[in-house]
Amino acid sequence: MDAPPTTTGTQPRGLQPETMAGASNESIELPMDQREVVFDCRELGVRYAGVRALRDVDLNIHRNTVTALIGPSGCGKSTFLRCLNRMNDLIPSAVVDGACLYHDEDLYGPQIDAIEVRKRIGMVFQKPNPFPKSIYDNVAFGPRVLGMKDGLDDRIEQALRRAALWDEVKDRLRQGALGLSGGQQQRLCIARALAVEPDVILMDEPCSALDPISTAAIEDLMTDLKSEYTVVIVTHNMQQAARVADMTAFFSVDQGETGTRCGVLIEVDSTEKIFTKPSNERTEAYVTGRFG
C-alpha cells in the first residue's frame, strides 16, 4: 500500500500532547474538531450474504481522542468497528460499500493490502484472547511476524509498561499467558497490540468479560493511551462511554417494512452533548434508558 501520510515509526506520535492535556480536562468540544481526522467514513455500509447489516455511516474519527460507539444489540457498532481495520474481510460473505478514508486514503481501495491496514490499526477483542504461550511470546508475536526484531526485549517491556501490566508480570515473562487473570489477559492483549506501534487501537467491548476492578484499570489505560494513539471503543455500557470517551457515536436499528433489521448511525457528537442534550430523540431515549 502506498504509505499514508502518517505511518508507524516515521513520525513522532502524540502530535499535540500539550494541547491534549489541557483539552481533556476543560472544554473538550473545541480542540476535538481541530484535531487531525484519522478516519473519514462516507456512506459506509456492510452486507452479510446480501443482507444489509449497516448502512450510510458518515463519521469522522479524530486523532488522540477516545471515540465510543454505543447502541443496542444488533445495531452494527461492532460491524462498523471491524470495517476500520478490515477484519470483516475474514468473513467471506461480508461486503463493504461506501468509503472509509484513513488519512485520506480509502481503506477499501484496490491497491490497499488488508495486512498493512491491520499493522497500523490494532484491535482488542471482547473476550481476552492471548495465545497459548508465554507472556513474552504473546507480546513478541506481532514484532516477530512483522520483522521488527531489533531490541525486542525493550519493545516488549515498553508495550507491557504502556499497558500498565509490566509490574505485575516482569518476574514471570516466560510463564504461560493463560495463567493470568481475565483483566491481566486483556491488558496483555492491549500490550500485544501496542507492541507493533499502531496508529489506532480498536476495542470491541474490551471490558464486558471483566470484573469492575479490571474494568477500571482498562478504562484508566484508555485515557492514558489517547495521548499517543487514537482509540475507538465499542461498549454496551453507557457509563463507560461517559467515563472514557471524548466523542460518542450512537448507533441504532432501523426496522424495514419486510422485517429486515439494519444498523444505522443516529448521531455523533461530544460525549458530554450525547449524554446531556442529544439532538436526536432516539439518542435521548436510549441514553435516558427509555429505549425506542
Partner: peptide, 26 residues
C-alpha cells in the same frame, strides 16, 4: 478457537503466519 486466528490477524500477520506460528502449535 477462532479468537486465536482473529487475534493474530488483527496484529497484521498473514493467515499463513497465524497458522504456522499459533494454530498449528496449539
Amino acid at each position: 478457537p477462532d479468537s486465536v486466528r482473529q487475534g493474530g490477524m488483527a496484529l497484521g500477520a498473514t493467515r499463513l503466519q497465524v497458522v504456522w506460528r499459533e494454530v498449528l502449535p496449539a
